[in-house]
Amino acid sequence: MLEISDLSAGYDSKDVVLGVSIDVREGEVVAIIGSNGAGKTTFLKAVCGLLPVSAGEVRYEGRSITDLAIHEIARAGISFVPAGRHLFPEMTVAENLGLGAYPHRPEAGQQSVVFDLFPRLAERRRQAAGTMSGGEQQMLAVGRALMSRPRLLILDEPTAGLAPKLAAQAYESLAALRTQGMTILVAEQQVPLVLSLADRGYVMETGAIQLQGSAAELRDNPTVRRAYLGVA
């Protein structure tokens, strides 16, 4: 579904991500794990058009989306939830969700899907997004991303800044989406959490893929255990 080959990207002609290749098949949940500063965020931003790609190619459903603008990628069916969330702070929850369906009017059906997944948002329907807690904002960001009925959901650190209990809840919601058949690509530092959800994973360090395999393989890999799972 998504094939990325030899992608390099960075800031001001200095590349941070160096020739990364990954692929995501339909219906899969794929994790990118790595420590802070490994290049995960830069990589996802480049894939979704927030940063220019300096080399390599991104193909989605067979066609190249490497040079498309953010909004074109979004309209092609990929919803990206960045770590910064980028909500509309002065708009209500309902208005934020409504914009998720742009350029169409929001469908009542899809809105109730989101409210089923995050009942909290239904209660806060009329509250301004900027006044909500971090956990609620994260729910809203995912909810907004789902409003366009995307075929691929990309998330960057969905648990950043969340208390452990909320982080676990966030992954329960993602698991629910997975059972509905959603394809998900997620970058995450909380490795145990993400490996409990994912089918496959990639380990990224210093801008390159160091390791890849099924979630089970990664869980059992001594390097991963030492570096990310806190097992000696």
Partner: peptide, 18 residues
Amino acid sequence: RAVRSVIQDEVGAQLCGV
């Protein structure tokens, strides 16, 4: 609403397809 969204958060608006 799309106009207001761009004013409030341009990147957010783009992520919504605006």
